[in-house]
Nucleic acid binder design. Structure first.
Lengths: 222, 222
DNA sequence: CTTATCCAAATTGTATACAATACAGAACCT
DNA sequence: AGGTTCTGTATTGTATACAATTTGGATAAG
């Protein structure tokens, strides 16, 4: 933590993820600087990073805007995620250890607890879900893969999708994690890959269904 | 081009790609600033971008070094490239237009010319090869995919590999591009994907063979 | 009324100065 | 002598001032 720069990065990302900064909004360095209580220098640093995360988009003349994602963009992101996280799961199956397996089980148990009640604890679900995927990714043991996926995993749009899940969707997600555990236990990388890819694709369709009504979704999952 | 910042980025990247800055070398901002004739501010900007490209690595305390890649790292990068560029080829097949197809043909013709002589024109080969892949990527029409692949395509290690190609390797590369053209002509995305994935994998093994001797390469292409 | 041009305001890019931090070597204690 | 702490130096982080560029509108010509 280099203090100001990272603080600014976290703060701005949080603003975008929470929707406080809406998609398409212009972003002025000085305004953010004042808001974060730092000078423009660390803000520029943070914006550069956020641009890498594709949360910020810069126009031809370097003006910054909050990136807005069309349904097609989101579809692309999910398809890439499905491919890359599938690959991560395959690699993770090769490297899986008893300890990590136990951690994954604990994680999924926590998820089960969070969604068992009448009112699902969405925040906990999201946290533990992220932890689960992070563990798999870490076990895959490819710094490069982690790097690529980080930009894809924390999408503002996706972030809020789980709030529209119906109870059954939570249950399915939990159950798919269970299948993944079975694949890991058996060291079956190909199986793990299939499950993970399907898991991510299902998440996309959950998102897509939640955001329909505007127009019939015309994407074909190739 | 915001002038100084981009100039610094290009200059530093060129230093790394050319080997002028060797892997593992420490990188001091002020030294680069003097060398590029600009102040530290645009240098920091450039370093941040290069860090995103994984050409620069920063230690715990934010000191910069030229990233060094193990054979395993390179293998990972290639495998990811194979997957992602395969996907790009599939999408490109869907979107292919007559104009782009013509450009690709011209590109591959230029490659043929460059490698036909007794002494292959490696610089031209590399340029046109990059152009070919860039066209495919652009036609895939996914900003996100482009973003992910950019970091993977221009690797310093890879960059110098083609200089060790034997004549046959150049010929194969050209011929695979030709196959890709056939797939595009027929709009066969699945075929295009297979060819591209194989094309990239072959490139890895060419790299791997060129850099062997140190120890028997123990990677398994999954 | 439309269009082009130019000017003023706003915004980003760069340079420099200064503060904070990390590294290395010396002095000191055990 | 070995290890530890302390201090000077080198390097990075931040703030501010200023230059360059862009944006939007006002104004004038057609």
């Amino acid at each position: 933590m280099t203090k100001a720069s990272d603080r600014a990065y976290d703060a701005i990302r949080a603003m975008i993820l929470s929707g406080e900064l809406a998609a398409g909004d212009p972003v002025r360095e000085e305004a953010l600087a004042e808001r974060c209580g730092v000078s423009r220098t660390p803000i520029r640093d943070a914006l550069r990073r956020l641009e890498g995360d594709l949360l910020i988009r810069k126009t031809d003349s370097q003006r910054s805007f909050v990136a807005d994602w069309s349904l097609d963009d989101v579809g692309d992101a999910f398809e890439l995620r499905a491919m890359l996280e599938g690959y991560a799961a395959r690699r993770a199956a090769r490297n899986m250890s008893a300890e990590v397996l136990e951690q994954l089980r604990a994680c999924n148990a926590a998820i089960a607890a969070a969604i068992s009640g009448r009112k699902p604890d969405v925040a906990t679900f999201l946290d533990r879900n992220r932890e689960f995927h992070a563990l798999v990714l870490e076990t895959a043991g490819s710094r490069r893969l982690t790097n690529l996926l980080t930009a894809l995993i924390e999408q503002p749009v996706v972030w809020r999708t789980a709030h529209h899940y119906d109870p059954e969707a939570f249950q399915r997600s939990h159950s798919e994690h269970g299948d993944l555990l079975s694949a890991f236990e058996r060291g079956d990388g190909a199986w793990a890959e299939s499950i993970m890819a399907g898991h991510i694709r299902r998440a996309f369709h959950a998102y897509s269904d939640a955001h329909l009504g505007m127009k019939a979704a015309g994407r074909d999952a190739a």
